[in-house]
């Protein structure tokens, strides 16, 4: 027994020592899981390789299972950089004072959502808000999604005189991500749904949308959305100038393979203030203190 304990203690200490000996901590990032995981892993593994080449430190991508898990990993300093949506970015920067939005897709300045419907509803595309969706079953994406929940909910409230979605629709659900919103509306589990327009385009290109079953009814007005947010203490850990190098690397992404996986044309600088409208909407909807 004694020897057994000695072995275990030795092993544990050995591990602790090995961990301490790693002089160069890896630079880890995550992303909100907003669509099919396989595609995300492909996309962000490529980004990790690219950043590792540019930054000269080991760069790892940590996949997470939910939007709040991405925010938590960021607040715990388990990841130092994250690809957030508009709202999760606001949440994360509130959790970690000193963190900054540093880059966004060119399209994220004026992002939009699609309201989609199963064809069995008989609803038709329009340029006006489709009031015919009242009384149907309705699926958002993730609860903390900007284009799959926060902004659409805002437009729904505007259209229906401030009524909550639960009061407008016969059933409200959260599918979890944009790809699944398409699935649940296409299968008829929900009659109407709302999602990120860029994921709709990506899924369409991938041939996963059956347009005889699901159609786009309306596109929302635009709002700011996704961005890269970095912790304020990266320079302290990885050396002065690291953050600037990171920003430059992100803005310099011009590999069409990466950009097309993001459905973005290029990355442009971003500031925290760009997301003030999102914060306001979130506070009004009582999703943020």
């Amino acid at each position: 027994m004694k020897r057994f304990l000695a072995i275990v203690t030795g092993l544990v200490l050995g591990f602790a020592g090995a961990a301490a000996a790693q002089d160069k901590p890896p630079f880890v990032f995550t992303a909100i899981p907003d669509q099919d995981e396989t595609r995300l892993v492909e996309r962000f593994t490529r980004v990790a390789d690219y950043l590792q080449g540019k930054l000269g430190v080991p760069v790892k991508y940590l996949p997470v299972k939910s939007y709040p898990a991405a925010v938590t990993a960021f607040s715990n300093n388990q990841v130092q950089l994250a690809w957030f949506g508009g709202f999760t970015g606001v949440q994360a920067r509130k959790q970690v004072p000193g963190s900054d939005a540093i880059a966004q897709g060119a399209e994220d300045v004026a992002f939009k959502s699609f309201i989609i419907a199963n064809v069995s509803t008989g609803l038709k595309a329009s340029t006006e808000f489709p009031k015919g969706i009242a009384g149907k079953t309705f699926s958002f994406g993730a609860r903390a999604s900007t284009s799959g929940r926060l902004m659409p909910e805002h437009f729904i409230r505007e259209a229906f005189a401030g009524r909550m979605p639960e009061e407008v629709f016969s059933r409200v659900g959260f599918s979890g991500d944009h790809s699944r919103t398409i699935q649940v509306v296409q299968s008829g589990a929900y009659e109407v749904g709302v999602l990120d327009y860029s994921v709709w385009d990506l899924e369409k290109k991938a041939g996963k949308i059956d347009e005889s079953k699901v159609v786009v009814l309306w596109e929302t007005p635009t709002f700011p959305d996704y961005q890269w947010t970095v912790r304020g203490d990266v320079d302290a850990v990885h050396g002065a100038g690291f953050k600037a190098k990171l920003v430059a690397a992100l803005l310099a992404i011009d590999d069409p393979a990466i950009l097309s996986q993001f459905a973005r044309s290029k990355f442009i600088p971003a500031r925290n203030a760009d997301y003030a409208p999102i914060e306001e909407v979130a506070k009004a909807a009582n999703l943020l203190n």
Binding site: F4, I7, V8, L11, V12, A19, Q22, P25, P26, V28, K60, L62, A73, S75, N76, N77, Q78, V79
Partner: peptide, 27 residues
């Protein structure tokens, strides 16, 4: 079981170091 415990300790996935647990716990 003793062997299982030792092997389990050995093969545990490496966690990304992250911030100090104490700071995180206080927050």
């Amino acid at each position: 079981l003793p062997l299982l415990i030792v092997v389990s300790l050995l093969v545990l996935p490496e966690a990304y170091p992250g911030g100090s647990i104490l700071d995180n716990f206080l927050r």
